[in-house]
Write a protein that binds this DNA or RNA. Structure first.
Lengths: 211, 211
DNA sequence: GTCTATAACTCGATAGAC
DNA sequence: GTCTATCGAGTTATAGAC
């Protein structure tokens, strides 16, 4: 929800740049990435279809700004969930799965955007920066689960597996319609799945270490 | 790769209907669901932009036919992988994760289509029929892993978790570019992840059953 | 900074000739 | 069955007035 770029000073119209981002996110939530267009965002913000191009060079830049804001919000959610989960490393990492699932159920289209190929993420610095923040946070939590002598590669691997499997669980679900019922139950199941996987993973590591 | 609908007899031009489906799949592989259009498929098949409408009432019908064909192929791949994995139920189910990952790396856009909200899957009988075949096959494999007295709901739950987490692992990966290197390694890791999860899951079940 | 107006495109889908 | 031709809608992006 923070404004990641330079809101130098108050314009007389209000901060249109920020308004465009928030309306873009709202539009994404309603229509999905496919339904996103600069023109629609402009109408929503109450300005002409040309106005956005004063703040963003092209469609992708606006889309990227929305993705960066969404990624930042997601990271905050995950970090917060880990903090509330208590001291046990497995509890903390597993808790992020529940928070991620909850976020996915409520901001489905936002997640689709974050991982969308439409957005040339690699070339959008803002997006990359926020993605790094997310992975850094996840790496720290994962590292605490593994033995102290675990390599960086093994840590990154487990962090990716945790994130990607959780993402799959949370996003493949809404088969029929949009209104997600029993959010608590679905999120709780995500936590159990993550915990089951970590149990099996650590058991295998210990098994190989001392046969 | 089978023709799921009625190719009554050989037309003088060749089977344009089948041609449109195969070109549609090829287009999807190159441009993704967003880049799909009836006009482009027509150009690829060497016919005019109006010709497809003789075989499919609208865009969604063509898209649905492509999705059904892709789902059928995916199901065959999973069933085949389980057969080759030997008699152990855990081996058989885990093997489908490897096959699914391999399929995802090679037909990424196809998977995106199968789960795409753009396609009103619920209203397309061909798609629903093939989706059922996939879930039925997966349910049978999952049922063999669980105790004999496991409920249908528990079986369906585990089957969904297995499928969705595997899907996430396989599809979230290609972060940078399209050419997937080390396909064998990535698929093997998927099998390990599935096995780790099943280990933890079964351990938790046994733990609660006999404390 | 935001407006109006428009250029240049692509898309889905239809009509009617052959 | 496939063609040509076209309509209407919607898109990105730019030009120039204010």
């Amino acid at each position: 929800m923070s404004s990641p770029t330079t809101p130098r000073r108050g314009y007389h119209h209000g901060d249109l740049r920020a308004r465009l981002i928030s309306e873009g996110i709202a539009l994404l939530a309603e229509t999905g990435v496919a339904g996103f267009s600069v023109a629609k965002v402009a109408v929503r913000a109450g300005v002409s279809s040309a106005a956005p191009y004063r703040h963003f060079p092209d469609r992708e830049a606006l889309l990227g700004a929305c993705a960066a804001a969404l990624t930042a919000a997601l990271t905050d959610v995950l970090v917060r969930a880990a903090e509330l989960a208590g001291p046990d490393p497995v509890d903390r990492l597993a808790a992020t799965a529940g928070a991620y699932t909850r976020y996915a159920l409520e901001h489905r289209a936002g997640l689709d955007l974050i991982y969308s190929p439409d957005l040339a993420a690699a070339h959008r610095p803002v997006v990359v920066e926020q993605s790094r923040r997310l992975m850094d946070a996840l790496m720290a939590l994962t590292s605490a689960v593994l033995p102290e002598d675990a390599s960086w590669a093994d840590t990154a691997d487990l962090a990716y597996v945790h994130l990607s499997t959780t993402h799959g669980y949370a996003t493949l679900l809404p088969r029929d319609g949009r209104p997600p019922r029993d959010v608590d139950g679905i999120a709780a199941r995500a936590v159990t799945v993550a915990r089951d996987h970590l149990t099996g993973h650590l058991l295998r590591l210990r098994g190989h270490g001392a046969p």
